[in-house]
Design a protein around this nucleic acid. Structure first.
Lengths: 330, 330
DNA sequence: TTCCGAAATGTAAACGTTTTCATTTGTTTC
DNA sequence: GAAACAAATGAAAACGTTTACATTTCGGAA
């Protein structure tokens, strides 16, 4: 592989001058520049980024940690992230953890071993202690969720309020028996959304039947099964708040298959593209996905440039999107 | 940041011995190992991967280039890729190009600048010349598509045959007026699928109405609009072959909205999860997504370990999945 | 011509590793 | 106690950059 040293030997200039040409420094004569550029072309030289990173001690790379690549929720987020990152000259690399702590730790090493300058975490299996410790030494930002008691920056919506609003919509439609399909892992943002759900019921003076709260995985099939379980109980609810659109779609699918789609209302969360086109549409809570991504990067870059800045939480607005999956109780 | 040198000063051992401990070399006394490990714990030392990469001249990282992060098609693929890669001790980083050549080139630099050891490309805007040139010097594999005339390895299904089979299914159902929604960018795999489509029509002695072939983007809304256009012509087809499930779902949505779902059959391509649950299901061509990913990595690693190996094309089997979106012509 | 200042170029160290080769230390054998 | 050998350790170079500082070159002014 041809290096700066080879170009130096080839052209008779020193490595310093070659480096200056490569980096467009003005301090080099036209003659030298021309000769060296010609040599670069002739040899097919490419600067070695590893050598550069080592010398400069930063990589201009950001790591985005995703639990899965199968959720369209992250598509828009990623666009926002890439927009902000590339505007600042950073490259984004993505790591998918499959929700496994061990894979997550592998990726964290990219941070600790200086392969990336900072990290955005979309979902973590670590606890608040791990997270706080990492955040002390390295720039990280939590995306679309937060962690109680952890000393770490995050960009999120107000999940509690959003879940409250969603549940309130069902209540306002006249429903009095309302169930919830929540996340299997008992952590944010599921915790907060359960909280908002329960608060809304309480404020309306409605009871929560314990068997009406089921925890499941964030995918279509799990949602379908969980809904089946919910509806097979002895006093099934007439409305269901789902912690994610993927679950809501699974639930609606079950209802459609059972001919219950007009009897039972379903509301989801996230406003992913499928919720728009599935059947008559899934009513849902919109998260500002693009902005969540964009703001995360902005915050991360701020932390990178000022390591001593205290952790900060940014809350972005949410809103309800009413579609065909919700209707008046009858 | 604490380095091996700091540990050397701290413990009194040389950097060589520290390095040996870090890398679990057996050539180090129990005493030294214990002392050094203690120092590592105390200082919170993490090996710097950049320094290591520079010295070793490989990064143990693979780059996966995706056109978008919004297609669930890539979820399974990624799982296959990660499975094979991590089994071999490699890490996978993902770059999303948004289908923009300039972003793609940025990521290609990660290869040429030695930040990754090899690259899997799921979709490219480069031409066969670019691709052949890169493939000459760096390990790359094309995933789920190939490029005619390019001297580059690829792992794919037989797109021509698959499209032929899909079209044949419609023909066997008695349809004689068949349209196609293809990809906007006239390149593989759209080209091959159009070819298979046309061949099937020809073999059945059916004419292709030129206005029945529409090229559009790979997403829901584009599919919906394209279908509308297709059905608004003066002699609309009774069956539609779509180059991707995302398009097929958009098309089926339009048909549902127009009350045509029982009149017009739709077949998609890829067998993504949504095609299973959308309405009565979308008939489609299954691609072995997990295996496509797995085999890509295996092939890439082979190329990495033997740079002089000639490019190779691996063809994996496909099959049809019949669901509710197709029915007998009437 | 000589001198001066600016512009161009070069030297060498540094970033954090790994590893070859040399050296030291420790153990065994006579 | 010396010789022989194995085990443990260390010194130093190398990977490919960038850059502070030193040196050379070049015009122009005196």
């Amino acid at each position: 592989m041809v290096s700066i040293k080879d170009l130096a030997n080839l052209t008779g200039y020193s490595v310093a001058t070659i480096s200056r040409v490569v980096n467009n420094s003005p301090m080099v004569s036209e003659k030298a520049r021309a000769e060296i550029e010609e040599a670069i072309r002739a040899t097919g030289y490419h600067p070695n980024f590893i050598g550069r990173s080592l010398r400069l001690s930063f990589s201009m790379k950001l790591l985005l940690l995703l639990p899965t690549a199968e959720n369209t929720f992250y598509g828009d987020i990623l666009r926002g992230i890439e927009q902000s990152a590339s505007a600042a000259g950073y490259q984004v690399v993505i790591g998918v953890t499959q929700n496994k702590l061990e894979i997550e730790k592998k990726y964290i090493e990219m941070l600790t071993s200086r392969q990336v300058d900072g990290m955005i975490i979309a979902n973590t299996n670590m606890d608040k202690f791990d997270l706080s410790r990492i955040s002390e030494s390295f720039p990280i930002v939590l995306l679309a969720h937060s962690m109680d008691g952890a000393n770490v920056s995050s960009v999120t919506i107000d999940n509690l309020a959003a879940a409250y609003d969603a549940t309130k919509l069902l209540i306002d439609l006249g429903h009095t028996s309302i169930g919830m399909l929540s996340g299997r892992y008992y952590r944010n943002p599921s915790i907060e959304r359960e909280e908002g759900f329960k608060n809304a019921l309480k404020d309306a003076g409605l009871p929560l039947n314990p068997s009406h709260l089921i925890r499941t995985d964030y995918d279509f099939n799990s949602g379908k099964l969980a809904c089946k379980k919910l509806m097979s109980g002895k006093a099934p609810p007439t409305a269901i708040f789902c912690v994610a659109d993927s679950i809501a779609i699974g639930a609606e699918r079950y209802l459609l298959d059972s001919g219950l789609e007009n009897v039972v209302s379903v509301i989801g969360f996230d406003n992913v593209i499928e919720s728009e086109y599935f059947y008559n549409g899934i009513t849902t809570v919109n998260q500002p996905k693009y902005d969540l991504g964009k703001v995360s990067v902005d915050l991360l870059l701020k932390i990178i440039s000022d390591k001593s800045a205290p952790p900060e939480t940014v809350v972005l607005p949410h809103y309800l999107v009413e579609r065909g999956s919700t209707s008046k109780a009858r």
